[in-house]
Structures are given as structure tokens and as C-alpha cells.
Write a protein that binds this DNA or RNA. Structure first.
Length: 276
DNA sequence: CGTCCAGGTCTAC
DNA sequence: GGTAGACCTGGACGC
């Protein structure tokens, strides 16, 4: 079973039908439940529940789907780097486009919910956030909550209802900081002139985000320099590699991929997720 | 029923 | 700059 933060979108992947269903927020309107599947070769089919959308809402939804499917990322430089590499040449066929959340805020909140807990607990916390704070679509399904919605409830809500434990303070502080403008997290997904170091520094300044979380979020932002080193990737590396290695050794091994070191590491670990 | 720990982070040395 | 200790929770495991 494969997991990634984007798997935690308030929706579900149906592997047999190869579809992804989720409920997405639309500005100035109720959220809508959408079903994403493969359309004609080279295109995605997006089916929207309910009455026909207006032009404005359609634009919103298309923007969200583009961000979820990461359609605008150009990985040609990475493919050129690995095409003659026995360990990663398979990736040049088109791997590495991470499934993402519509907003950086959502990814950051979910990343906090992955720290120091079993995956089942992460799912439980995110489900509670969506159920209790997310706006409902006509289908009854809920979208991921906005920063405003998350800032509007007290920290005790996160402890008592979400059962997020000590993460509660981080979740509330992040939402409140985004609302106040202290943390402009969406800018990190839009800016192109910021260095990876600058982006990393801003992510590390977020409450509850440390080296693991920053590396994880940067991958989703198309910043592939950092290796995600955590309790899942370390043993997985040992398994794929054949023997254990220190973080420093792993970092050294992937240094040759330059600004794509993090992506190379991730794909090296997840090759067995790819069919065939 | 007690202990351990899971896709860590923060604080205090 | 590097490193112990504390930190919520609930599922897994040993007794």
C-alpha cells in the first residue's frame, strides 16, 4: 500500500476504476465533488457533481485540478539527468509528478498530522478536520477546511475533537498565522525567484514543521533538493539498497543529482509502487 | 494491563 | 552546532 500526503485529500482513490474522487472548495460558492480520471491520451477527465458550473467556478475548479495533478511541472531536466542511470532510467518515462493538494496550506496542515504518529492516526485526524470544519458540497461530502475555518475554533477543539494531542497548538497557530498574514504559505507555491534555502527557511519557521516536514512540503512545491529522511524512508532505503546507511551517506550518494536529489531519492524508494 | 512506537519537533542545555 | 527529554494519541504487542 502506497501513501503520500496527497492521498489524504478529502476523497478516495478507486484503484480498480483508476479514478480519484474529491470535494474541492470554490471561491464564493459551495464546494463541489469531482471525479478525476484519465480522458483521451494526454488529458484528464473531470466530472463535476450537481448543476452546471458558471465560468468563474469552472476556472476555480480547473486551477485546483491543475495543482492536484501537478500538470504544470516541467521535469525534463530531471529526466535528462537519469536517462542513462541504471537505478533511475525507468523514471524518465514520466515518473515523479507528485499528486498534490489544491493549496499549500492544506499540505502543511496534513504534513503536521503525519508527524510522530502511525498513518492510521494521520487519516483519523484529517478526517476529523474535514468532517467538522470543512464546508459541505451538495453531495454532502466536505472540502478541506479553509485557514479561516481552522483559526475560528480554539486550540481545545483540536485536542478534544480532532484528538491531535500536542499538534493542536501547531495546527491552530498555523491557521491563525495564515489568516493574520504572518505566514504567506501560498506564495511559496507561486514564487519562482526564491532560492530553495529561502523556501526551506520559511517552512521551518512554521509551527510544527521541522526538517522532515520542510523536505516533504518542498517536494510538493517542485523544490526537489531536500531528501525526506524519516522513519519510513530510512528502513525503506535499507531494504532497497540491501543494507543500512547513515543519513550523511545517503545524502552523499544522492548529491550527484543536484537540485533533484530529493526526487531521485524518493523515486529510488518507490519504484515498487509503479506497475510493471 | 504495561510498554513501545509511529513518515518529528521544540526546548534547553 | 549538536544532542537528550518531553510531548498527545491509539494501535500493536508481550505478559
Amino acid at each position: 500500500m502506497s501513501h503520500g500526503v496527497a492521498d489524504l485529500l478529502p476523497g478516495r482513490v478507486d484503484e480498480s476504476e483508476r479514478t480519484y474522487t474529491t470535494t474541492l472548495a470554490i471561491s464564493r460558492d459551495r464546494p463541489r465533488t469531482v471525479r478525476i480520471s484519465q480522458g483521451r491520451p494526454g488529458s484528464a477527465l473531470v466530472e463535476v457533481e450537481g448543476r452546471r458550473l458558471g465560468a468563474r467556478a469552472t476556472d476555480d475548479l480547473e486551477g485546483s485540478v491543475r495543482r492536484i495533478l501537478n500538470l504544470d511541472e516541467d521535469l525534463s531536466e530531471f529526466y535528462a539527468l537519469v536517462v542513462d542511470d541504471p537505478a533511475l532510467s525507468w523514471a524518465a518515462a514520466g515518473a515523479g509528478r507528485m499528486l498534490r493538494t489544491p493549496t499549500v496550506f492544506e499540505a502543511a496542515i496534513k504534513t503536521i498530522c503525519t508527524t510522530n504518529v502511525a498513518w492510521s492516526a494521520t487519516v483519523r485526524m484529517v478526517d476529523a478536520l474535514v468532517e467538522h470544519l470543512g464546508e459541505a458540497a451538495p453531495t454532502g461530502a466536505h472540502a478541506f477546511p479553509t485557514a479561516d475555518a481552522m483559526a475560528s475554533v480554539p486550540e481545545s477543539f483540536y485536542r478534544e475533537t480532532v484528538r491531535a494531542g500536542y499538534r493542536s497548538a501547531y495546527l491552530h497557530a498555523l491557521a491563525a498565522g495564515v489568516v493574520a498574514g504572518t505566514f504567506d504559505v501560498e506564495a511559496l507555491g507561486a514564487e519562482t525567484d526564491l532560492s530553495d534555502d529561502e523556501v526551506a527557511a520559511r517552512l521551518l519557521a512554521l509551527p510544527g514543521i521541522g526538517p522532515y516536514g520542510a523536505a516533504h512540503l518542498m517536494m510538493l512545491l517542485g523544490r526537489h533538493s531536500r531528501l525526506i529522511l524519516d522513519s519510513w524512508t530510512r528502513p525503506k532505503y535499507a531494504q532497497v539498497n540491501g543494507r543500512k546507511a547513515s543519513d550523511a551517506t545517503v545524502e552523499r550518494r544522492f548529491r550527484r543529482y543536484g537540485r533533484y536529489g530529493g526526487l531521485a531519492f524518493w523515486l529510488y524508494l518507490t519504484k515498487d509502487w509503479v506497475p510493471g
